[in-house]
């Protein structure tokens, strides 16, 4: 089992949205649909404020409730990894996976109707490339790699830096991390 993770540095992320456009062009996502998005979280009161930017997407959970909810096996783990994919030819469009995702990371493909989502650009990962969002980020705040390899950039960053994942309390074991 290989665990791929994305590690995103909120200290250097400026919330520019390049990741979103890069994903859309790389993966030819139809107009009006998004596989990733950017969130700005501001806490505190003027003038004592903290603002954090987060590029968000499917967390490719190790315990993916969407995969478990799928009645046909269309939602599945790619090869022996944590990358969650949807096999369109098995998908009935029942939307149980959408309801099962606590991150609202899935979408209904237009016009076909099967369910679609971030793939961690597995077609690029297969070629040894970073996902398109990571490869396009002008601030270099996004990193991608294997958690199983202790020398990978993601392992190293998670060892060295304070970090969080989103909603770990769901028990989904998300694999997108945010450096703080």
């Amino acid at each position: 089992m290989t665990t791929y993770a994305m590690v995103i540095d909120t200290i250097t992320c400026i919330g520019c949205g390049d990741c979103v456009v890069a994903c859309k062009t790389e993966n030819k996502v139809p107009e009006g649909l998004n596989r990733d998005w950017v969130v700005e979280a501001t806490s505190g009161e003027y003038p004592n404020l903290h603002t954090e930017f987060r590029s968000e997407r499917c967390n490719h959970c190790s315990h993916a409730t969407c995969v478990y909810a799928c009645p046909t096996g269309a939602s599945h783990y790619w090869k022996d990894t944590n990358i969650v994919l949807v096999a369109a030819e098995k998908c009935t469009g029942c939307k149980a996976c959408i309801a099962a995702c606590p991150y609202d990371a899935r979408l209904i493909m237009r016009p076909e109707g099967y369910i679609d989502k971030c793939t961690f650009c597995h077609h690029r990962v297969d070629d040894g490339l970073d996902p398109a969002c990571v490869a396009s980020c002008p601030t270099h705040c996004m990193h991608f790699g294997m958690l199983d390899n202790p020398d990978s950039i993601v392992s190293r960053l998670l060892r060295e830096r304070r970090h969080k994942a989103l909603l770990p309390e769901t028990g989904n074991e998300p694999n997108v991390y945010y450096l703080l």
């Binding site: 950017v38 969130v39 700005e40 501001t42 009161e45």
Partner: peptide, 17 residues
């Protein structure tokens, strides 16, 4: 106060808002 706001507009039909 915490303000969490989408920076990039996202409007996946039947999922957003």
């Amino acid at each position: 106060m915490i303000e969490e706001v989408l920076v990039t507009a996202r409007h996946n039909p039947k999922i957003d808002p």
